[in-house]
Amino acid sequence: MSATPLWRRAVAEGIGTGLLVTVVVGSGIAAAKLSPDDVGLQLLENSFATALGLAVLILMLGPVSGAHFNPVVSAADWWLGQRDGSGLSLRELATYIPAQVVGAIAGAILANLMYGESAVSWSTTDRSAPHLWIGETVATAGLILLIFSLVWSGRAAIAPAAVGAYIGAAYWFTSSTSFANPAVTIGRAFSDTFAGIAPSSVLGFVFFQLFGAIVGVGLVVVLYPKLGSAADVVVPHADTTDSGVAS
């Protein structure tokens, strides 16, 4: 368990998830303005900014909270940690998830305001279709498998680059453009822009993200049955004193 106070880790998770949504929504708005007649170019711009932004956020906040920024990552960390007493406790999980969701909503509002949009404009982009749900299942399962295979095999140091690269690639190889994150999905409903998702589509996406996480956890257990512990996902976070200086 990290010596960093739980409230500080929750703040880091809220900020990290919020800035991630700001990157996703903000770059989507910018892409739509810069390339109004080319959806493919818009997606390229959006995915490139998201991949780089996510890697930077993991590097910046990982030492504080582990840089989950995603309820299914936190839930998987808690679940897998039950086997050997590592990972998040139930209390920590119950603190991380609300912080991530609130942060995601705030991040969407910030992106809207930066581009002169209404603070809240509910998305009208319908994403309710079986092929999109399959895409979310694949995207989330792959994300969980990637993160825990890196951690359990002692390669967590490359997680910022690897996770950023995976999400950037998954924008293109999944039909859903790889939300793979319930908090981010909820946040994106607050912006009627290129990266938005209609509120009516959120529940379906979240359900299949949870299902994908279960699939991913199962694959981790099958492929890495004897390696490591679940703690310190996405990256190892250092013990800190109350002054916030790493010991």
Results as ranks from 00 to 15, higher is better:
Gly244Gln: 08
Gly40Gln: 14
Val102Phe: 14
Trp79Arg: 13
Phe211Tyr: 08
His68Thr: 09
Arg127Met: 12
Ser27Tyr: 06
Ser118Ala: 15
Ala99Met: 12
Lys33Asn: 14
Gly85Ile: 10
Asn46Ala: 15
Leu146Met: 11
Thr185Gln: 02
Pro5Leu: 09
Gly85Trp: 07
Thr50Leu: 02
Asn112Phe: 00
Ser118Gln: 15
Arg155Phe: 02
Thr124Tyr: 08
Ile186Met: 00
Gly40Ser: 15
Arg155Tyr: 05
Thr174Met: 05
Ala183Arg: 03
Ile134Trp: 05
Leu44Trp: 11
Pro5Ala: 06
Phe69Gly: 01
Leu143Ile: 04
Ala31Pro: 02
Ser123Val: 06
Arg9Met: 15
Leu6Ser: 12
Gly66Arg: 02
Val233Lys: 11
Pro130Ala: 03
Ala170His: 01
Ala94Ile: 07
Leu57Ser: 05
Ser153Gly: 07
Val73Tyr: 04
Leu132Gly: 03
Leu227Val: 08
Asp126Phe: 12
His237Lys: 13
Ala55Phe: 05
His68Trp: 09
Tyr166Leu: 14
Val72Gln: 01
Gly16Ile: 09
Pro160Trp: 00
Gly164Asn: 06
Ala76Val: 01
Leu80Gly: 07
Gln209Met: 02
Gly18Asp: 04
Thr140Gly: 01
Ala94Trp: 03
Gly216Pro: 04
Leu19Ser: 03
Val25His: 04
Gly142Asp: 00
Ala94Leu: 15
Val233Gln: 11
Gly66Cys: 02
Val102Ile: 15
Gly154Tyr: 09
Asn181Glu: 10
Val217Ser: 08
Ile134Cys: 01
Gly16Cys: 13
Leu34Gly: 01
Ser178Arg: 04
Leu19Ala: 04
Arg155Lys: 14
Ile15His: 04
His131Cys: 10
Ile158Ser: 13
Phe173Gln: 11
His237Val: 05
Leu52His: 05
Gly18Met: 04
Pro36His: 12
Gln209Ile: 00
Leu52Lys: 07
Pro236Met: 10
Val163Met: 06
Glu45Lys: 14
Asp37Trp: 13
Leu88Val: 02
Gly85Leu: 03
Leu6His: 12
Gly164Ser: 08
Glu117Gly: 07
Gln100Arg: 08
Ala129Thr: 10
Gly164Phe: 03
Phe208Asp: 00
Val64Glu: 08
Ser47Trp: 03
Val163Asn: 01
Ala159Met: 11
Ala159Thr: 09
Gly85Gln: 09
Tyr96Thr: 06
Met1Val: 14
Ser201His: 02
Ala51Met: 12
Ser27Asp: 10
Gly164Gln: 00
Tyr171Cys: 10
Ser27Phe: 09
Val202Phe: 02
Leu223Cys: 08
Pro160His: 01
Ala195Cys: 06
Asp37Ile: 07
His131Arg: 15
Ala10Phe: 14
Gly40Arg: 11
Ala108Ile: 01
Phe48Tyr: 14
Ile147Met: 02
Leu54Arg: 00
Ile15Asn: 07
Ile134Met: 10
Ala195Met: 04
Pro71Phe: 03
Ala230Val: 09
